[in-house]
């Protein structure tokens, strides 16, 4: 997917620029545009390193686990098809908690484990179960409390208030999560 998308951008971009005859601009773009990418990475290096360090503390001290426990009762209601005390639920809460803290790389292994556990309880191994779909809808609606990369980039471009988007982003996340979960609920009910 990314493979095709990447090729598509370059082919369409170059062809169209040649077509409208902006050759100077095109050479400029090809030869110098990656500099803004380097700037971007340079700006992201400190915040990623800092945040990874802090999150390691959160993980080792058991804080992540504590936060997962807070989510647990709420999340178990969202997954009525899972067995009580299902292992999957533990991995789901860890995944959501890690995601919420902006710990993407730590979240993925939990998520894959959760899928594996749900697959074990799944009757038809080729077809996605209700629980899997609910989990992925929740996961992809992006429950992030502190979007560190966005804040770092805003800082780099001299925003007067880089963190001002935190609360709006949380509110928007809540909207999309509720919308996704509601639609999932309706469609699940319809099948029965």
């Amino acid at each position: 997917m990314i493979n095709k998308l990447w090729g598509f951008f370059i082919i369409i971009g170059i062809s169209f620029t040649i077509l409208v005859g902006n050759l100077d601009g095109l050479n400029d773009t090809i030869l110098t545009s990656t500099k803004s990418g380097v700037d971007m990475v340079l700006e992201l290096i400190p915040i990623i390193i800092l945040w990874s360090g802090l999150m390691k503390i959160a993980e080792s001290s058991g804080l992540l686990e504590q936060i997962s426990k807070i989510f647990h009762p709420l999340l178990s209601k969202l997954f009525p098809s899972l067995k009580k005390n299902s292992k999957a639920l533990g991995y789901i809460t860890s995944n959501i908690a890690a995601n919420a803290l902006g710990l993407g790389s730590a979240a993925t292994p939990f998520g894959l484990k959760a899928m594996e556990c749900m697959q074990n309880e799944n009757d038809n191994k080729k077809v996605a179960s209700d629980a899997m779909i609910t989990f992925l809808v929740l996961n992809t609606s992006g429950v992030t409390i502190i979007p560190t990369t966005v804040i770092a980039l805003r800082l780099m471009h001299k925003s007067a208030n880089p963190e001002e988007i935190i609360i709006p982003a949380i509110l928007a996340t809540i909207c999309s999560s509720i919308a996704g979960l509601s639609l999932d609920y309706i469609r699940r009910r319809k099948r029965k």
Partner: peptide, 28 residues
């Protein structure tokens, strides 16, 4: 900024997670 913070790479995540347990019918 808000858009980047509040949504995720849905298609990529679905491909990764369903691919890992070989689910081919992803329903809704």
């Amino acid at each position: 900024s808000v858009l980047q913070g509040c949504t995720d790479t849905t298609i990529y995540v679905l491909a990764l997670y369903f691919g890992s347990i070989k689910i081919s019918k992803t329903r809704h």
